[in-house]
Structure formats: C-alpha cells, structure tokens
Design a protein around this nucleic acid. Structure first.
Lengths: 358, 358
DNA sequence: TTTAGCACTCGAGGAGAATGAGTGCTAAAG
DNA sequence: CTTTAGCACTCATTCTCCTCGAGTGCTAAA
C-alpha cells in the first residue's frame, strides 16, 4: 500500500523537523515547514492516517507526532536525499585524515574518534574480522650478547616485533642467531595459531640443541601476535557525546547505553551479526538492532576494505532521531578514506619539506 | 591551631559517613557512628566549631554537614588509615594484571582500564614523559624484490617496525639492503628528531647512490617513531563511571567533566604540572587542582617507573567525596605492578602449558 | 562543660490549578 | 469526495502553595 505523494511529503516534513528540534511536531508546524497550501485540519487528517499506518507515533493524545522506527525506515529508504558533504566539511575531514602513525590499529582508532567528533555521536571502529592467520616468516636481529629483536611477519603482511632480553646472559653470536632463524622458519612458518602446539615447540627446541628456551620465547611471542590479530579489536570514542542529545538527559538511560558501549565484546558481537551484507553502508533503526540495549537507538555502519579481502566496520550510535543522511555521508566518506589508505599500500610520505625559498 | 582529639574523631566520622552515603550528616548520625558517649547537643557544638574553622560546610542552614576540601585534606593527611587491600582484591588485581601483549602503550592503556573498573571512577594513564630520544640502530629485512621491513630501535630500547613497499618494483638484492643498512646506521644512529634534517637526508641519499628515496622512506618512518615516543600519550577509560555517582546526576555537570576528560591534551597538561614531586602518590582535592574544570573533583595520582629513569602517571578522577584510602591503595598497587613489569625486563612467559596428565 | 529543650529554618515532595499546544470530530463549503 | 473552519477536549508542563521533618542554634539548667 503506497503512500500518496502528499503523505510522503508530510512524513518527510515531520521527520526533518523532529530531527532538528527533538520536539513532537504538530499539524501547524508541518503546514509551515513544507509550504503546503492546505489547511492544518487537512494535515491533521493525514497525520492521523500516517499514525494509524504506523509511520508516526503520538507520545500522548495531545502532543504532536513523532516518527516511529517504521517511519524512519521509509524515510531512509525512499525519502532521504543523498547528502553531499560541503567542501568545508570534506576539507575538514581530509585534514584530520592525515594520520601520522601507520600502525593499523592506531589509524582505525583515530578514524573512530574522528567520526565521533564529526557527527557528535559515539562512534566505534572494528578492525577486520577473524580469519585464520599464519606466520609468514621470522627474523631475528642480534642486539648484543644477551638480547635480540624478534620480528614476526604474518601472511597478511602485518609485521610485529619484540625486544627479547635473555634471562641469563649467554653471549649469543651472529651464527647462532642465524641458525635459530632458519630453524624457526623451517619449523613454524605457514603455521596457524592452533598448529603451534607445545609438542611442535618441543621438537624444535630439541633440534635447536640449546635448550635455553629461546625458541619458545620467540614462538610464544608469535602466538601472541596471531592471537591478537585474529581477535578483531573494537575501539570506541566519544561516548560522552551521548549527553549532548536531549534523549539522554535521563542519566539512567545514558549510563546504560554508555556502559554497553564500553563493553567491547558485546559491541563486537552485535556488529558481526548484521554484517552489512554486501552493502558498504547500513542503517539499523531502533528495534532493527539485535541487541536489547540498542533497541531504541540507531546504528549507522560503513565498511571499509583492509587489503587482503578483509573488511572492517566503522559506525555511529545515536538516538533514533538522527540526521541519517548527514551521518551516513560522513561515515562513508571516512570509510572510503580508510579503504584508500589501506588500498594503496605505500604512498611515499616524502621528506617533510622545510620551508625553502624559491 | 591543632584540633582536639574529639574534634578529629568527629571530623573523621563525618567524612566516613558522608563518603558512604553521599548525604549530609547530622549530629545524631555522628553520635551513633562514632560511638561517642556525649549527647548530640555537644556534637552540635563541635560541629559548629569545625564548620567555623572551615573543615565542614553546610549546604543550607537546616542540613547536616558536608566535608569541605580543607576537611578532606586534613583527613587525608592525618586521619586516614592506610587501607590494606583484601586478599580477594589483590588476587583480582593480580589476575587482571596478567597482560598479554607487551606493547608498552597497550599495557598502560590496559592498566588504566583496570584501575577504572577497580575503583568505579574514570581513570587515566600517561606514558612516561618527554625526553630527547635518539635512534640507536636500523635494521632492514628484505622481504622480496619490492618490499622490505624497516626496524628502528631507539635508545630507550623501543623497537618499531614497518613494512615498506616500494612504489615501483626495483628488485632489491640482499647486498643492496646490506649497504643501505650500513649507510643508515652510520648516518643517522645517535641522532635526535631535530637532527634528522632534510639536508642530512639529502646527503645520505646522495651517498647511497640510488636516488629512489629509500633512505628517506626509512628515515621518515624513524621520525614518526621518535615523534610518537616524545609525545607522551594519554589514555582514559571508564568515563561513564561518572554517572554512577550521585554528584553527577546532573547531566550538564557530568558532560562538562567528561568532555574535559576526553581532551587528552588538557589532561596531559594538568597532570604534568602537579608532577607529584617525589612522592609516588598524590591526592589533589577539589580546588587544589589547577584546571578549572577539576575544581570540584578530586584526582588521585600514582607514578610508576618505566625503566630508564622515566616515570609515568596513572590516576583516577572523581568527586571530592571519594574513598581516598581505598582508591589510593588500589592505584598504587597497580602502579607498583607496572613498575615491576617494566623493571624486570623479561620474565620468560613460558610455553602455555597444555593440560598434560602427570 | 555538657545536656535537655525548644523554636526556627529550609529543602524536599506532593497536591492543585492554570496554561497552552495540539488533537479529533463535526458540520459546512468547495 | 475533499477540504476547511470551529470547537470541545486532553494532557504534559509549570507554577504556587502547603506540609513535613531533619537538623540546626540558642538558652537555661545540671
């Protein structure tokens, strides 16, 4: 049952006014807002219809109308105009996007913070999701007789290192290190976390001849790395922005949501489920959320490509009264930025130019 | 002008009751709480004295008394008993203290979160403060013809790495990498951030013969690393805990403080000032804080040693009504834990034992 | 110096009453 | 059949007014 054009126009007017003011909107307001040349009475009739069909709700009999989740849904699907970011806004985002450190998780954390600041809502960012990761190779760098740096590279090209100091000084030599490296690589490269069994490690230790546990030191570091990579990390930012919005003037409500948001695991769970299908952005309105705690909030998600076919998710949480168009636009702009960042692996950052004349 | 024993006892009773209940405490309550065998009238007289001397305040004429910052100060300095953590508590902390990843900033971040959870207040952690850091050495690991891993080690034994992919494939060979490494080390090791001038880089590039910018790629990575290390990072956690406490039922108040806490720079600034003198822990009560935004909150700080003579700070923010004894105890326990963690550089984590029978 | 007694203060909380935005319905007009 | 003017009605919000009671300060006696 399609809505008439006029009904749509009215619904849209209601939503846009409500999003701006957070006040229930009445027939008169609609009349003015969407310059309609019908009387308020007519609009009242239409509003009554829309309410009956479930697109609007009435907090109480003598109040104006408020969009229902169903109303927002229709709005998002059909009525909403794609929001173009202003030049000023893109400039602002681009500028913030010049992230310093290349470390993957820091970049993603930063992106989350940025989105939160940009939208005035809490935001979160999830790093690319689980997959079996394997070790590609080991390298050991001798520092001095009693310490060396272990470098582990995984098959998704993440490189981590750790400085390993030996409990007792035992005067490692370069050839020894060399040998150890070869052994490590031949025994453990290509292996997943599960495959790094204590048995395997013992065998390798044995083969290494020296039983000082060097092998296991390095391998358990590698295990930490793999473990860390396979767990997708969640970063949240700007939860305090919740308090900016009138729907969270109630401290109890705000607190419940905030503490939910700070539980990373739960967030991660509720985000892996609606997994965005193939869409690059998705809007979940109120009860469309799986998690009970989010039943009266909306979530806007955008996915970004980390190379290697993996995707991460970045998103915003807020009241259902949200400027979906704007939020979605900003979010996907940032997500695209991230994709590009990871896509073009190495743009030479260039030497920071000192001011030079001529 | 010293207070009489009785006055002290009363002050202490007032504070401890107020900390528990958040309600102004009256003469009767004091009488019961600190089993004093004087009448409430006597206590009223004493309370009046204490109020006049500024240790207590009266929200309004017909309410009980509330400790003033000066009152808390006296309490903290003289009256407060060192709180011993219960076995249960230390067990809990110790358990949480088994941090996986050794990455310095992650550990510190984690510690902050832990403290917040432990105390039910927002917490923050600051990494060891600025100092001129120099590069100790470079290592390059050849991955394939068009990419290599750059490893930078600084003089405070931090090791960072980055996978560098060349913009154009140019078939690097091991000897070339070797050469490059030597060149990097001879030109740049021992240098601080400031000394890594473009001039120096150009010279090195020139010396390298190949102008493909490899040198500058690696060096600018090193610069990022140095920059990152010299800026002390601030981590905050658990800001939403503010809402747990009745003094922040007022959303406006909560919001102001929360957004202050999420501005890392300001936090860092207000924390470097009161720099803890030599004490390992410090309590700042209400107006003793420098920052206006903290004038009616208290901050408990503890410092921890990152090796190398450097110190970091970890702390808790909350209303002046705070269980200082407990918070300080927990905080310094964690801070000590951190110090130990950094102090004994490498306790071999051991192979994760699989359940083995006998 | 302590205590009992008592008048007093003042915030918290609740009951009404006034306000007014916005509705639904009816009946007339287009 | 649709639109509109008119009007009675509803109900959250706001304000005022009042009561209640915890806790005080003061006085006078012990």
């Amino acid at each position: 049952m399609e809505l008439t054009e006029r009904k749509k126009k009215i619904l849209r007017a209601v939503i846009e006014s409500y999003v701006r003011t957070a006040e229930p909107v009445g027939s008169k307001t609609v009349q003015e807002q969407a310059d309609m040349n019908v009387s308020s009475a007519t609009i009242r009739n239409e509003l009554a219809d829309l309410t009956e069909q479930g697109y609007l709700e009435q907090p109480h009999t003598s109040a104006g109308r408020v969009p229902s989740p169903k109303g927002y849904r229709l709005y998002v699907n059909e009525l909403m105009e794609e929001q173009r970011l202003s030049l000023e806004e893109t400039r602002q985002i681009n500028q913030a996007m010049h992230l310093k450190m290349q470390e993957l998780d820091k970049v993603i954390d930063q992106a989350g913070r940025m989105v939160s600041q940009l939208t005035n809502y809490p935001a979160f960012a999830v790093t690319g999701n689980a997959r079996r990761i394997t070790i590609r190779r080991f390298d050991l760098i001798l520092v001095d007789g009693s310490s060396f740096i272990a470098v582990v590279m995984t098959d998704n090209s993440v490189v981590k290192n750790k400085l390993i100091r030996l409990p007792l000084p035992l005067d490692l030599s370069q050839p020894q290190i060399q040998l150890l490296t070869t052994l490590l690589n031949s025994s453990f490269s290509g292996k997943t976390l599960d495959e790094l069994t204590p048995q395997l490690m013992r065998v390798a230790e044995h083969a290494a001849g020296n039983a000082y546990g060097l092998i296991s030191l390095v391998v358990s570091f590698a295990m930490e790395v793999l473990e860390d990579l396979e767990h997708s990390a969640v970063y949240t930012a700007g939860t305090s922005h919740l308090l900016d919005h009138p729907e969270y003037q109630d401290v109890g409500k705000a607190q419940r949501l905030m503490s939910y948001l700070s539980q990373e695991e739960s967030l991660a769970r509720s985000l892996s489920l609606p997994a965005l299908g193939d869409d690059s952005t998705k809007i979940l309105i109120g009860p469309e959320n799986v998690a009970d705690e989010l039943k009266d909030t909306s979530v806007v998600l955008a996915s970004y490509d980390i190379g290697d076919g993996l995707k991460g998710v970045i998103g915003v949480v807020g009241p259902t009264r949200m400027d979906y168009a704007k939020v979605a636009a900003k979010l996907s702009y940032v997500a695209d930025g991230l994709s590009k960042l990871f896509g073009q692996p190495e743009l030479p950052p260039g030497i920071p130019e000192e001011k030079e004349d001529s």
